[in-house]
Structure formats: C-alpha cells, structure tokens
Design a protein around this nucleic acid. Sequence first.
DNA 1: GTCAAGGTTTTCGTATACAAGAATTCCAAT
DNA 2: ATTGGAATTCTTGTATACGAAAACCTTGAC
Lengths: 218, 218
Amino acid sequence: MERKRSDIIADELESLILDGSFSDGARLDESQLAERFKVSRTPLREAFQRLALSGLAEQIPRRGVFVRQPGPVELIEMFEVMAALEALCGELAAARITDAALDELRAANTRCQQAVEARDTDAYYRENECFHGILYRQSGNGFLEQESRRLHRRLQPFRRLQLRVRGRLAQSMAEHEAIVDALEAGDAKGAAAALKSHVAVQGEKFHHLIASLRQAAE
Amino acid sequence: MERKRSDIIADELESLILDGSFSDGARLDESQLAERFKVSRTPLREAFQRLALSGLAEQIPRRGVFVRQPGPVELIEMFEVMAALEALCGELAAARITDAALDELRAANTRCQQAVEARDTDAYYRENECFHGILYRQSGNGFLEQESRRLHRRLQPFRRLQLRVRGRLAQSMAEHEAIVDALEAGDAKGAAAALKSHVAVQGEKFHHLIASLRQAAE
DNA sequence: GTCAAGGTTTTCGTATACAAGAATTCCAAT
DNA sequence: ATTGGAATTCTTGTATACGAAAACCTTGAC
C-alpha cells in the first residue's frame, strides 16, 4: 500500500516537532515548507490538519498554524491519563494474558535490563516501548490498544528527560518486574495499581525535574 | 472567530454519520458531496481527513473514504475505555470539587429526573451530557476533560439504544445520586468505582440488547 | 515623537486544472 | 460462454490560480 505525500510529510513534521526541532509557538509557514519539501501547499495543508487534530499544532483561522508544545502542567495531565489507560490494560490483561505473552514480557524486560547496564539509552527506550506495547496488545481491547499507543507515542520524547533523575531506571525496572508478577498471578487489581503508579510517577518525576531546572536557572 | 467552510462541513458530516444517515461501509463521494454542499472538493477533502482521524471514516489511498461504524465488539471496547476515563475524572474530582459544582451536579440530576418523568428523551440526554460534562471539568485535568468529551461525543448516539432496556433509566439516575454522594464525601475511590460501573454497565447493556435483537431476528 | 488611517502586501481559504492510478467495460480469443 | 487483456472512464492526489482577510508599512497629522 503506497502512502501519499501528505501522509509522509505529516510524519516528517510530527517527528520534527516531537524531537524539538520546532520550538513552541513557532509558525509553520506553508510556502516556506512547501519549497523545503518540494511539494505544493495542498499536501502540506493536509499534513497541518493532522498535526492540529493530534494536538501537536494549533490552527488559527486566517492566521496560520503554530506548533504547540505541551507545558509542564499539560504533560502531567497527559501522564495522568496515560496511567489510567495503562492501568486498564493491566487489569484486563491479567485475566487473559497467555504464557507466551508473559515470556515475551520477561524477555523484553531482560533486554531492558541489559540496555540499562550497557548505558544504551536508545535500546532501553526501544525495549521499554516493546514491553508496554505487549501489554497494550494483551489487554484484548483493540480500541484501548490503539488509544494507548497514540498517547504513548505522544509522550515518548518526554520520557527521555527522566533519565536525569538519579536511580529512576533501576526503580523502573523493579516496577516492571512487579507488573509481570501481578499479571502472572492473574491479580487484576495488583497489575492495575502497579501500572498506574509506574506511569504516574513519570509525570511526577517530570514535575520535579522541571522544578529543579527552574530553580537552577534562578 | 469565524470558522471555515471545511470545519462546518466536517461537523455536518460527523452528525450525519453519527445519527446513522450513512450506513457502514458507504463511500463518501467527493464530487457528489461537493455538489450537495455547494463547495469544491478541497474543503471536503479536509473534512474527510478530520473524520478519518477521529475514526468515523476510513481513508484508503487511491480508493476513497468509507464510513466506518463501530461494531458491537468495538463499542463495548470503547465503553470500557470511557469507563476508565470517567473513573479517573471522579477520582480527581473528589479531591477538588467545589460546593458550587456539587450544586450544579445536583441541579442537572434533578432536571434529568424530571425529563425521565416527562418521557422527554431529548431533554434526558441533554441533561445527562451536562452532568458528565461538569464532572469532566471538575477533574481539574484539562487534557482528561478534552479526551473524555471526545469519546463521550463519539458514543453519544449509541447511548440512545439503551432506552430500550427496561428499568435502565431509573437505575442510571440512582447511580448518578451515588456518584454525587461519593464526590461530596470526598471519597475518591468510591466515586471512581461508581463511575466506572455506571459507564461500563452501558456497554454491557448494549451487548445484551444486541444479543436480544439478534435472537429476535432468528 | 507618537499615533492613526489608508493603502500595499502577504497569507490563508477555496476553486479549478491537471496528472496518475484504479475500476469498469468491451472485445477478442479460446 | 468464459476469460484475458487493452482501452476508456472515473476518481483520487497534487499543482496552480484566484479572491478575501489580516498583517504590514507608509505617510501624515497632532
């Protein structure tokens, strides 16, 4: 299935915004980007719509589109919702998960641990994403899986910032273990609670990080 | 702030799809709809993108866009997610809700009850939406509020089907009361649990309804 | 020097034109 | 009659053209 140019451009812009190439409030100039991507304004406008609907940009009629990076408050809000979604994934998965999937989770966890020891942050995030992806799938709820992936992807770039918090990685790994244990035991409540705090704590850590950065700047 | 034609058309099409004017799998013909709405294909295509991204239609490259009505399974999945979101709203709201908002909730509930007694289903749904809207707002989490509204709106047309289930309305009203009581008591866990079952049961009732309709058809 | 008003210019939103790919149809051959 | 294939037609995706609204720049008055 061949994708159309507007979709490719939307992905491209999405990546550029997510990795911070565009700062908050920057205007996305149609003709300028059209020249850069060697396309007309039409596919660009379609890409803009996609960005606006996924919340990465804001479209002000007759004014243009502006990238909209979430502030600390909104990020914490998003992590809070993510925690609820993942908790539901865990709750549902506890009842339905297969032995094979449990093995996959453990395997991803092991690779995660190895990445931590090797100080390979890229690998860590890849395996971490794998771990959570399996969980979403094992919820058995396709809609939930889809929504979880969407939000996870949106929050992905901000998870990196947590690397700075001392000891977070080891703690995170321990939490993963606890999650798998709860799932294996078929403990729906336990899995949900473990996941909720596992994700929610990320938002809180992020909050502390921001606060300390701000303090350092003064 | 003046809205553009493409947004107006998107809303229009959204309503048409949600109220069932287009059956599942129907193709949305660009030129045909362009003529119907007296606009060119450009704003229509923008509207289509919006529909596709919100899941109401599927866009197959070089083939066209087709309306995608969720099946029973997907609906139940969506209600399950809605329940988790509303539970989170309740949990958060329990800690922050103001007396004024509690009064508003009770007022909406009273109007709801009156609508039930008057057999005015339109008013019932309007007030019910109001009740849940206040709750979303009182979560104090703007992102959660936004996501909740989005999903609520998408599920709205399917809530109507539950009218057919005998005694559901009275039960629903009782649940609303329990929710307000828990909020007033600042019982976060209780509010969350009450909301979760209040919403989740809608998906289950829907399931039963579908099953009975299928049985009747045989 | 500041502010306001009018015109110019840029940019967005929409219409139209054009190009490429998919579906359908029609014809011929087996 | 059926099937394979080529040609036509229809539809989508992209480019360009045009009109309108907002931003800007200039200019003049206080």
